[in-house]
Design a protein around this nucleic acid. Structure first.
Lengths: 221, 221
DNA sequence: CCAAAAGTGTTGTGGCTACACCCATGG
DNA sequence: CCATGGGTGTAGCCACAACACTTTTGG
């Protein structure tokens, strides 16, 4: 039961890690997690673990990544871990314990066990879903300017995206809508930006990317 | 540990199910599977289970679907299942036990526990991957005509795909290649079809569907 | 020579990137 | 009035679906 909690922070995509104080893997950085209790399903459990151990209460999105089960992944005894991707909006700053840090996923420290690999898998899953779902809602505040959103997408994807096309793609898909309000311009002037929000804060697939799609007229399934 | 083994058979996408002979869920249809042994990882284990129990030795592709963990999914005690998608090429016909059948996924019988839901999840995963990967190799024989491939894709997707465009999309992506050989025409005449094969029999993503893709010139990550 | 099936040529379209251009503000 | 950042208009591209057309066989 491990959670790769990701957030767009300071221009990078970061993952929450804590530094181990005992053997094995003393001083290495690990993903937070814990054991499944008898009356929970796995998603409930990982949410509880993250709230209790690292004060992350407001995961805007949680999904399963995979089960990691190589017999030698944990020294001594057999440990099978179910790994999760969790996302935190960029305007939230949980009060994490002293041994815990947000590390850039692109520049991980020495990680315990296979936790580095898990973090990278979580990042890749997020990146893929940014393209074909509305999952950006889980990284962004409730309302934001297109510039802010651009910074978030750039951090998560690892390259600069154009604000112009970001707005256009998400609007065309009906993912983004304007609030009608604007916020005042920055200290160096410029036109005051409009505030936007995501129309839907549940995950939905917005680009079914079905090549070989069903015939346009005629029977479905 | 459960395997949803799918195959394109007789024009349908089918899943291998066996009929339970005891309580609970007497006479309902269940996915094959078993328990994880101490020295295996989960993929090795599901391959072993399927070979031992239903004589499926030649899974051309195996991947994890998800962990199913609702506390009440199994009556009595808590059972957490890791579910897999397994694929069998259409020219193989395993000698399955007497209590086992290939059921169309679109028309499932009464299933045990949540196994029906798992089979549908597996089908949806396969359908998505047919669009953006070369996963067709796992459903097709080593060599085949475009017509045969069309039948396989149509069965898996649940709607008719055009042979013309199927060949074109897969060729453009470099997924398909001709063997140079042809096979003789059918009883009703017609031009003898060419034999094709997949260029690669390992899973690869052929359409990265990255909207918001990185700038064409300039810095990557 | 005709029906049937395989395979190619070609047109139109939608969604995207790139970039030029216009808009609204602070100093 | 000009620098700065926000936002729109538009051209071009590319992968695809659709369908007309050509090719090659059996009878």
């Amino acid at each position: 039961m491990l959670g790769a909690v990701l957030q767009a922070r300071d221009g990078d995509l970061r993952v929450l890690l804590w530094q181990r104080a005992q053997q094995p893997h003393l001083h290495r950085w690990a993903l937070p997690g814990g054991r499944l209790a008898a009356t929970e399903d796995v998603e409930t459990s990982i949410r509880r673990q993250l709230a209790e151990k690292v004060d992350v209460h407001k995961l805007s999105h949680v999904e399963q990544i995979s089960v990691f089960s190589a017999p030698d992944r944990f020294p001594g005894r057999r440990v099978v871990a179910t790994a999760f991707l969790g996302l935190v909006p960029s305007d939230i700053d949980p009060e994490v314990p002293a041994d815990t840090r947000w590390h850039p996923v692109a520049d991980l420290p020495d990680t315990a066990f296979d936790h580095g690999e898990i973090a990278l898998t979580a990042r890749d899953r997020l990146r893929a879903k940014l393209s074909y779902t509305n999952i950006g809602f889980a990284l962004a505040p409730a309302e934001f300017t297109v510039s802010e959103l651009r910074r978030i997408y750039s951090a998560a994807l690892g390259y600069q995206v154009s604000a112009t096309n970001l707005q256009r793609v998400l609007s065309r898909r009906g993912v983004l809508e304007t609030t009608g309000r604007t916020v005042s311009a920055g200290p160096s002037g410029g036109r005051p930006p409009a505030l936007f929000r995501f129309t839907n804060r549940d995950l939905e697939v917005t680009d079914p990317f079905a090549v070989l799609r069903p015939p346009s007229r005629g029977g479905q399934d």
